[in-house]
Design a binder for these strands. Structure first.
Lengths: 341, 341
DNA sequence: GATTCCACTGCAACCGGTTGCAGTGCGACT
DNA sequence: AGTCGCACTGCAACCGGTTGCAGTGGAATC
């Protein structure tokens, strides 16, 4: 434990600058914040000194007086007991969020919460660590939302809004997504198109199913309940449900899967039992994760423009914090055609 | 812009608690921090009131007086111009870091820096937003390290330490990794094992190559320079370099690839030209990203135990901040055998 | 020449904690 | 009884900004 190499050149404060410029702290503070009360000459002089001295404002001090942290917490949950590995979807969205926040001078805090913990909102909001939350957690999401609404905490969530609560949301256009996917498969001449959905209780899934049904009807096809199953978005569940789908409707020639991960699991099963993709069974996924370009065959999928989602989550949350305007944004989807369909 | 629904029940401060308990602010502060000066009775009374009032300490205030933020910044760079998509390796490490930090009561800040920006360390350290950095950026890493060392900023970096500077590092056991991978391939009876490395100037890559050479020699095989090429870790470069490898050594029957992403690119090329994996060419990757279980064939790879890496990065950095003890940790690697080899 | 106004600037309080030092009360020891 | 020490507790300053309000000087107006 050796002593500090360079005893730190004590941080330069506005008081130091004030002394050097021969003005008061208030003037320096105002000048640095470009307050119109301050004369141009003074401003320039102060800015020059600040630059020369490499002045860095002290964030905790500013946050203390301003009573806002200029920080947003990204909340998600640990995926595994011990170490948490974030899923791909969550990860890809992060880049978009930071880009949106940075433009407005906000910091991004990572927050991995225990799904059963009810204390994290207070620990961050009341404690002044964060001004708002971006909710990506799916486990027990409703419980968390209820809690946040009740304590009047600023937050925005990914997913279809709960009818009983009022809060900001960003969602994908699931109806159109389902229609695009199934329509594309029908357009390829497929006649027995299956639906491998996410959890049946999710509104998103119903909408995708509705889009799927519409597209089939428009193509003159019927929706056969035997060709409809539901999983939980994971690749494991994709494999499992694909098997039960093949049991129930062995003659299917296409499948619209509600997540890329499930689609990958499904394709593995198809390959195992000797069906070729896309020749025997065409597959369309959902999300357009970067992994879809790296699997074989590359996966045709519905793209949600995830970076845009992230950016909107950031921007709309900040807007809500400032104006309390509740927004619901639907981001457009598009079909990305690759090899699998 | 409607008025606040519930006009916020103004945050409870230690002054409020002091009033209610009939003691002074100092006593409350000490009691809450479990300072031995305070009597047990008083402590209990104060803790009870704090709980009842849902007291949350004000972080900015504490950070201001303590002059430390209890926050670590995770610094990486944007991968694309406009929106940044984090690469998988970076992302998987994040979970481990947060787990390590949380145990010690630290927050994790995400920091995406422009590789050419030289101002971010000051903007965060001097400004009191973060107490230290975890460096994962690879672009212009050396420049950033130099900068941080010169300003005596606490940080830890993933990768082999620069010989001229002294700072904390965590690295994988690349020598063993290379030996394990090549040894496994040799053990399968492969005779013409190629090496598809990362950037040739990286020390990590040299070590993996050394391990590879050692393993080949131990197996009685020769290292043929024609079977050695270098890429940049991306899947695109994996595909490209695989092609040049096949040009130069069309008879290869196995390849040790320095990253999973490159391995995936390489496998696509192999498939395109009609070579089967693993029958014709066995492939071993590096990193054990979660994606390796989802590709076909699943990828045999060298696992760096990424969650552990993250945890060590966090713990060793905090230790450095507290004691200025410079640590260099090598995390063990292991071979994960799957279908591709 | 006196008054008014305006454009700036400074004073001092405040945000909510932490901490050095100076009490305070009480039992113990001489 | 007097003194000392010990175990607590309180006072007040401080961290580094922001801001309401009062003050200053000079030009413009009457």
């Amino acid at each position: 434990m050796k002593p500090r190499a360079v005893e730190k050149k004590k941080a330069c404060t506005i008081a130091d600058i004030a002394r050097e410029a021969g003005v008061s702290k208030s003037t320096v503070s105002r000048a640095l914040n470009d307050n119109p009360l301050i004369g141009d000459g003074t401003k320039q002089k102060i800015n020059a000194i600040a630059k020369k001295r490499h002045f860095q404002i002290n964030m905790p001090a500013r946050r203390l007086t301003l009573k806002q942290s200029n920080t947003i917490a990204f909340v998600t949950h640990s995926m595994y007991k011990q170490f948490s590995v974030c899923d791909l979807f969550t990860m890809e969205i992060l880049g978009g969020i930071t880009s949106g926040l940075k433009e407005q001078g906000y910091d991004l805090l990572m927050l991995f919460v225990d799904p059963c913990d009810a204390d994290w909102p207070a620990q961050h909001l009341a404690a002044g660590r964060a001004d708002g939350f971006i909710l990506m957690t799916s486990t027990r999401k409703q419980a968390h939302i209820k809690m946040l609404v009740e304590m009047d905490a600023p937050f925005i969530a990914w997913g279809i809004p709960h009818p009983k609560y009022s809060y900001c949301t960003v969602i994908g256009d699931d109806l159109t997504g389902g229609k695009l996917a199934a329509g594309h498969l029908a357009g390829l001449g497929r006649k027995r198109i299956a639906f491998l959905g996410g959890p049946s209780e999710e509104k998103e899934v119903s909408l995708r199913f509705e889009g799927y049904s519409t597209a089939l009807q428009e193509a003159g096809l019927i929706v056969d309940p035997l060709r409809v199953v539901h999983g939980d978005y994971s690749d494991k569940s994709g494999a499992e449900k694909m098997r039960s789908l093949l049991d129930r409707a062995p003659d299917l020639d296409a499948v619209f899967v509600n997540s890329d991960l499930m689609a990958i699991g499904a394709m593995q099963v198809l390959r195992e039992i000797g069906k070729r993709v896309p020749e025997d069974v065409a597959v369309v996924g959902y999300d357009n994760l970067s992994i879809t370009e790296k699997v074989t065959p590359t996966l045709t999928t519905v793209s949600q423009n995830i970076p845009l989602v992230g950016k909107l989550l950031a921007q709309n949350l900040l807007q809500y914090i400032r104006t309390r305007a509740v927004t619901h944004t639907t981001v457009p989807v598009e079909l990305v055609v690759r090899q699998s369909a």
